[in-house]
Nucleic acid binder design. Sequence first.
DNA 1: TAGGCGTGGGG
DNA 2: TCCCCAAGCCT
Length: 296
Amino acid sequence: MPADPPATDLAEAVNDWFADAARPLPWRAVDVSPWGVLVSEFMLQQTQVARVIPRWHAWLERWPTPADLASAPPSEAVRAWDRLGYPRRALWLHRAATAIVERHGGEVPRDLDDLLALPGVGPYTARAVAAFAFGARHPVVDTNTRRVIARAVLGQEHPGPPSTTRDLAAMGALLPAADAAARTFNAAAMELGATVCTARAPACESCPIAAGCAWLIAGRPEYDGPRSAKQARFEGSDRQIRGLVMRELRAAHRPLTRAELDATWPDASRLDRVIATLVHDGLAVAGPDGFALPES
DNA sequence: TAGGCGTGGGG
DNA sequence: TCCCCAAGCCT
């Protein structure tokens, strides 16, 4: 027997654990459409599961297909997005729905390159849809999977800065050969990182691969490698101001004059600059009567 | 590739 | 309280 357990043992152990431990997330139900999966992946980008669940239900009830969303004005997508954050995602999802109607007959494409060509769809989302909606055997790597690999395989507390090429190769090396096991492992590795092998306080005592985890075996050494750049302070940032302006634009179902936006931020020139970035992003449109969400 | 992009949840 | 982090993507 080799001293190091083969990668297949790790995947098997994680998959066995997942069979019992998987949370019953609504987008994992067997009757969920590829569109439902795509919507969930958009909403889950940098956003916690608990905040997504109610929005996801409401979204799919209102727009059950890409064509339904594409036929609504983008303003309604931004409003329905509500306070999930990063409202550009709502715009991109609307544009993706339009592209799906125009280029793919209203059906979410299953080809990886077709998915990657959709606005707001990057390496993670494209592979997640291909794998979870269509069962394709692609490595899927999100922040949870990156952390699981860093600990279990590399013996580091935290992954280094992300690199799509390296991250996909690392996951590809662990991926079981069989399609079904590979699809399960993609979801199971993410689930392990989200619920057990967490960033802040990992529950190693209840981890299914504790016996083979390089980081745990090494005594959980503190990480001293390069970290991802930390987020800039939110308080007083452009992001905060953008959020305040967007809240006003969502609530007002008519254009708001610049004067009506005065109260959102005391520094007028700063506010002007931020509004310009919203217009640049397409989240706001400047018209003769003021600023509004995009109607087309 | 580094930085910008919302809005919270939890330690 | 404050700070880290969250199923990333785009430029």
